[in-house]
């Protein structure tokens, strides 16, 4: 496939007087892991929200695999293969880890209007769901209620659910936030394993992880992209250092 897999064209989002996304243009090419970094309040999560279709941009277009998806709803985008994970985990608290993933598998199969058979005993749901749990290292925790899982496990489960929708493109909103050092390492390895198979846009504050994983990095400040390029280039970029990296002491 030629051309970018995801393309943002002149995206603008305002909240009252505040411009959260300021004429943002960005390409993510097939197969790459593209990191989106920037100081707090730079509008990274707002960008993810617009790509996922939860926020409606005020101006600009979003193209996915060459087709405009600007007006599609979130579920429609997911069904096209564009999934996301949440920074603040959005899980079904009363259900088990397996239930959460199985529901995403079910959504991917598109057979929701079945009223009689017990879904929990359906091997076509539990089988793939277990595989996705295993892929994030949670096979042993499948039957635990979400409310009883740790924060780190919530983050892993977020990823497993996103994977279970069968995405070709993943929007990852701070998958490492709040994780301990060893948990971050584990998450980094999981993402590394996905590279190449799934194109990813990663928003992350953990610079160690970003520079270890990213093929390209874009830097967002006050809603505009001030630099974009391979990690080595971004590391040397004076403007980026001034705006951002210096205070983070990379």
């Amino acid at each position: 496939m030629t051309g970018p897999m995801l393309r943002l064209e002149g995206l603008v989002k305002r909240f009252g007087g505040l411009v959260a996304t300021d004429a943002l243009t960005l390409d993510v090419v097939p197969g790459e892991l593209h990191a989106l970094i920037g100081p707090n309040g730079a509008g990274k999560t707002t960008v993810i929200g617009q790509i996922a279709g939860e926020l409606r941009q005020d101006e600009g277009r979003i193209l996915f695999e060459g087709a405009e998806i600007t007006r599609l709803s979130t579920p429609q985008r997911v069904r096209r293969g564009l999934a996301r994970s949440f920074q603040i985990t959005q899980l079904l608290e009363d259900d088990t880890a397996l239930d959460n993933v199985a529901l995403a598998v079910q959504a991917g199969q598109g057979h929701g209007f079945r009223f009689f058979r017990d879904a929990r005993r359906d091997p076509r749901l539990a089988g793939p769901a277990m595989e996705h749990l295993a892929a994030v290292g949670m096979a042993g925790r499948a039957q635990v209620r979400v409310a009883d899982l740790s924060h780190g496990e919530h983050k892993q489960l977020e990823l497993a659910i996103a994977l279970a929708t069968g995405p070709r493109f993943l929007l990852l909103d701070e998958p490492m936030a709040g994780l301990g050092a060893s948990e971050s390492k584990a998450m980094t390895e999981i993402l590394r394993g996905l590279k190449g198979r799934i194109t990813m846009l990663l928003v992350e504050h953990d610079m160690e992880a970003v520079f270890a994983l990213a093929d390209r990095i874009s830097v967002l400040v006050y809603g505009r992209c001030i630099a974009s390029g391979p990690p080595a280039e971004i590391r040397e970029n004076a403007e980026v250092r001034a705006a951002y990296l210096a205070e983070e002491e990379v």
């Binding site: 979130t74 579920p75 429609q76 997911v78 999934a83 899980l91 995403a104 929708t165």
Partner: peptide, 8 residues
């Protein structure tokens, strides 16, 4: 969450 896994 339901919307984010593709359910209308």
């Amino acid at each position: 969450r339901m919307a984010a896994i593709g359910i209308s």
